[in-house]
């Protein structure tokens, strides 16, 4: 788990302090294109002579910014949705449950791509569009987990006891239910960030993500696929960046889940 945290730390550090670690990722230098990795250019240069290392480092910032935004939006919306559905039950749960099912039936990436494709007609591929399109399908995982948690806690005696003494729904939600769902939600969020980053870079790879010259890992990979023979590093380094970052979040998330499982006590 700590190894995961370390990796995340490195990536976040790179994203936040990009200015101090790397050079200008936008600086085009056609006389130095497609250079292989060296001390001057750690990851080499791309087809426009830009320093690849810098682009990958700044790319961390792009990916993290988008991923965190998407995760927060999905988490808040999804959790509320799931909590309301699970807590009030009855017709609300039936309807909300169907809505969740409907979203689950459409493959995530398909809808993301379709949304970006359609929305970019009017708005271009701005970060907002990407955030919206991915969050549009991403919230469902949170809704499901929260709904499940709430359903199981609802039946515990201390909730029934609280109701018996006339506690308001809001109070019960705040004091009893929320402390118990925070754990699973946090675990889900850490594991989810990895998937979101892959979704962001998939869109970027397809050309539907953040457009160049803004550095984005998927997009860099995409441009790199034309230079496999002459400059494979353009493809390799952003790819490793994605893989390592996602790996970091996954390792951390799983470690977190193991820790929380062991200590799983219902907070009364």
């Amino acid at each position: 788990m700590n190894k995961g945290l370390f990796i995340i730390g490195v990536v976040v550090f790179a994203g936040v302090f990009a200015e101090f670690i790397a050079k200008d990722p936008y600086r085009v230098d056609m006389s130095n294109r497609l250079l292989s990795p060296s001390l001057e250019h750690f990851f080499g240069t791309d087809q426009l002579g830009r320093d690849l290392f810098s682009r990958v480092v700044y790319g961390a910032r792009t990916s993290l910014f988008l991923a965190v935004s998407i995760t927060i939006i999905s988490m808040i919306f999804g959790s509320l949705f799931g909590a309301v559905s699970g807590y009030f039950g009855g017709i609300i749960d039936d309807v909300f449950g169907r809505i969740i099912d409907i979203f689950l039936s459409i493959p995530d990436l398909v809808l993301n791509i379709a949304l970006v494709g359609i929305l970019s007609l009017s708005y271009g591929t701005s970060p907002l569009i990407i955030i919206f399109s991915i969050a549009f399908t991403n919230w469902v995982s949170y809704a499901r987990i929260v709904r499940g948690s709430v359903l199981s806690i609802k039946e515990h005696e201390f909730v029934l006891a609280a109701k018996a003494i006339g506690a308001s729904n809001l109070y019960i939600l705040r004091k009893h239910i929320i402390p118990n769902i925070i754990g699973p939600v946090i675990v889900l969020a850490t594991l989810n960030v990895g998937n979101v980053i892959i979704a962001i870079s998939s869109l970027g790879f397809l050309g539907l993500g953040i457009q160049p010259p803004t550095p984005e890992w998927g997009e860099i990979l995409n441009s790199g696929k034309n230079y496999l023979e002459t400059a494979p590093w353009i493809m390799l380094f952003p790819g490793f960046a994605i893989a390592v970052t996602v790996l970091g979040f996954n390792i951390f998330g799983e470690g977190l889940r193991d820790v929380l499982d062991v200590k799983k006590e219902i907070i009364e």
Binding site: G194, I198, S201, S202, F205, G218, L221, G224, K225, L228, E229, P232, M235, L236, G239, I242, A243, V246, L247, N250, I251
Partner: peptide, 22 residues
């Protein structure tokens, strides 16, 4: 498992192409 879910499939595909094809 861990590697499989962490490495994006388009990157893995390109790696395969690079190694085995190119």
């Amino acid at each position: 498992s861990l590697l499989g879910i962490s490495i994006p499939n388009f990157f893995f595909s390109l790696m395969l192409i690079w190694i085995f094809s190119v």
